[in-house]
Design a protein around this nucleic acid. Structure first.
Length: 684
DNA sequence: GAGCTCTGAATTTTT
DNA sequence: TTCAGAGCTC
């Protein structure tokens, strides 16, 4: 970012570099001196710049950077802001001492320090969602709930209920009634299950994501501890405040009792995480929760050209509940957003690819172009088309690196040596061995438990002959790593990899690609001195793009960005495509149960469209093929998303895509095919 | 008790 | 298409 050069002017006082190019509202937020601050920042209103400048301003005015806490939604966001703060900061290197990261990562860091008063041991391990579900599943079976005549909620539903109770600080009965009405009859059983779940986690010294926040919040209910923990910070800056939940609000309240000043930044029109119990009310109630709050509103948009803003303003104008006002821009004119009706899904793919290539010809690199969609699998056919045309891309969202079986396997080894009480990790690793299933794994684990959880004790376990060699090998491996804490994490990964490699080949078809992932993991580990930090970083800030799986890309390579709308939050591109803008995808069929859900889908659409700087395309296919069954070739007709009302369409330009661009109906098979299909499908 | 095969069901967004 | 669970065989 080029800074404007100030011409030498001896009469005016020199403007500090972090205050340059700020509008009056931004400047007010950056230099705000006393009390708490709420910044209502519309899309593209320079929120990141404001936060970064604020950090630089605080440091320049004498705040110890180590006493600033910057809470963001992703680690990437924190790094980006601190990088920018550093760039305009008068004290080189200072910004790197700021505490920056997600709520969860910060909780992890603090809980390592305050483990004892929290009733934890500092070597606790963190479970991801899959582990938490598996743990619930084990308990569910122990309690015989899976065998009930009426089906008990699936493990993922159980966890979702639990999570909402914790994050929304709501009673289970209320949560079931409002969000899981079909489980309402299981209230009693779920309560017992959750009780067992909490006990088990405590016995095993493991925390799930929710626990990180919960233990932090609980620590803060003790006034002495609250003053101590909160007293570590003079300033707490929170980004994306509209997507925090009531538990996080409670944490902030507790932290403030230590004397820290809170600055929260958010936009209620972009609240899209209610499934994680995020609540816009957090933002609206902020002035009430923190008396003496100053509210600053940023409504000048610096990102998008005027025609795009006209469309997005019209779109969000349909929201029933809205608190921020329309955005305005001085960015000038340009192409109206294009609403593209595609005949088929394949036409949609082709249209996008052709536009992407055309823009690249005009000089817009692929990385400045993004394709956004509601659900991770919506990009499947586009990905095939991109591969066919040799166009490189990175995909954000959906299945994470960490969720692949082989990655989880390898991490489980590390978790055992980090925390030998971690049962889920033990079970996972033991059952990888040939000849070891649930039964022997349970017995082996009992044996290890009696030996005070020393992994090497596995060597003295008497197992059936078929399982002995593998168990001995495992005992040797874990024993050695356990006893040599000084072994660098990368070396530990390497040893495990050597042991695991043959098992991987036995287990998976595409062992080669998976083995390369494990090498990537080892590569990642070389950046760490401590296994504990390596593990928590993996769980809390995992690599976001699946491109890691395809090997490390060349540095100068250019690639197109594919992303779920959720993962696109906070980003911006020159060219943005919003694909599958059809009812059922946007809003998702899964989220049309209540007006509140539909309203959130509208905000989601708004978030997607406001990512665009200069070119915005919205595509929707008229027909979808459903190939669930191999032989039936069923298709369904789609409709344009209900969010594109006449008022919204009035601000857009419209186009058609399909039938090879031919406008002559007689010359194309575009009409012939649907008719033939219809006639056939009548008898299907 | 391990591990395979078959069947039926479901299918979002993420720390 | 993928995943979980039941049931069957070695």
């Amino acid at each position: 970012m080029a800074q404007k050069k100030t011409t030498t002017d001896h009469t005016a006082p020199q403007t500090a570099p972090w205050l340059l190019d700020l509008n009056p509202e931004q400047r007010q937020a950056v230099t705000h001196a006393a009390g708490h601050l709420l910044v209502v920042a519309g899309a593209g209103s320079g929120k990141t710049r404001t936060l970064a400048s604020r950090v630089a301003h605080l440091i320049a005015n004498g705040t110890d950077p180590g006493r600033i806490l910057l809470l963001t939604f992703t680690r990437r966001a924190a790094q980006e802001m601190l990088k920018r703060a550093e760039a305009c900061s008068p004290a080189p290197g200072a910004a790197s001492r700021v505490w920056g990261g997600t709520f969860h990562a910060t909780a992890n860091r603090l809980l390592r320090v305050y483990a004892k008063p929290a009733g934890l041991s500092a070597d606790f391990t963190v479970m991801d969602q899959g582990d938490a579900e598996d743990q619930l599943n084990v308990l569910r079976q122990e309690q015989g709930l899976h065998a009930k005549e009426k089906r008990f909620p699936r493990k993922s539903t159980c966890l979702a209920v639990y999570s909402r109770c914790v994050n929304g600080t709501e009673d289970i009965a209320e949560v079931l009634r409002r969000h899981f009405p079909w489980c309402a009859n299981w209230s009693k059983e779920l309560k017992i299950l959750f009780q067992a779940y909490v006990t088990r986690k405590q016995e095993r010294n493991v925390l799930d994501y929710d626990d990180l926040l919960l233990y932090w919040a609980e620590l803060l209910t003790d006034s002495t501890l609250a003053r101590d923990i909160g007293g570590r910070f003079d300033h707490i800056l929170v980004d994306e405040y509209q997507d925090t939940n009531s538990l996080q609000a409670r944490i902030l309240g507790g932290m403030a009792t230590g004397g820290a000043r809170i600055m929260a930044v958010g936009d209620d029109a972009q609240s899209i995480y209610s499934f994680r119990a995020a609540n816009v009310r957090n933002m609206l109630d902020f002035p009430k929760q923190f008396p003496g709050t100053t509210v600053v509103t940023l409504s000048q948009n610096y990102r998008s050209i005027t025609p795009i803003l006209a469309t997005t303003n019209a779109l969000i104008g349909q929201a029933q509940e809205r608190f921020t006002k329309d955005l305005w821009s001085t960015r000038g004119d340009g192409q109206k957003p294009l609403l593209v009706t595609c005949k088929e899904e394949s036409d949609q793919d082709r249209f996008i690819v052709e536009r992407v290539l055309a823009h690249r010809e005009e000089g817009i690199p692929l990385r400045e172009q993004a394709v956004l969609f509601r659900a991770a699998h919506h990009s499947a056919s586009l990905e095939l088309e991109l591969a066919r045309r040799n166009i490189p891309y990175h995909k954000y969202g959906g299945l994470r690196f960490l969720e692949f079986g082989h990655i989880k396997d390898l991490i489980a080894f590390l978790r055992i040596v980090e925390n030998p009480r971690d049962d889920m990790a033990w079970f996972r690793v033991l059952q990888l061995l040939p000849g070891v299933g649930p039964g022997i794994a349970a017995r082996a684990l009992r044996h290890v438990t009696e030996a005070n959880r020393d992994p090497a004790a596995l060597a003295t376990f008497t197992a059936p002959a078929s399982a002995v060699p593998a168990l001995q090998g495992l005992a040797l491996l874990l024993g050695e790593i356990y006893r040599t804490p000084a072994l660098p994490p990368a070396t530990q990964v390497e040893r495990i990899r050597t042991f695991y490699d043959p098992l991987l080949k036995e287990r998976y078809e595409n062992a080669g690609a998976r083995a390369r992932d494990l090498q990537t993991l080892e590569q990642l580990a070389t950046g760490y001195r401590s296994r504990r930090n390596f593990l928590s970083d993996l769980q809390l800030d995992p690599p976001t793009s699946t491109s890691e799986l395809a090997g490390v890309p060349l540095l100068d390579e250019d690639w197109l960005v594919l992303s779920t709308i959720h993962s696109a939050k906070g980003c911006e591109w020159d060219v943005v495509h919003v694909m599958h803008a059809s009812d059922g995808c946007l809003p998702s069929d899964m989220a049309t149960g209540s007006p509140a859900e539909i309203e959130e889908e509208l905000r989601l659409t708004y978030v997607a469209m406001t990512r665009a700087r200069n070119f915005l395309y919205v595509e929707w296919p008229m027909r979808y093929y459903h190939t669930w069954h191999r032989h039936t070739d069923r298709h369904i007709y789609a409709q344009l998303s209900r969010f594109f009302s006449d008022a919204v369409r009035g601000t857009m330009q419209e186009a058609q895509s399909g039938a090879d661009g031919s406008e002559d109906p007689a010359a194309s098979d575009a009409t012939a095919r649907p008719i033939a299909d219809r006639i056939r499908s009548r008898w299907a």
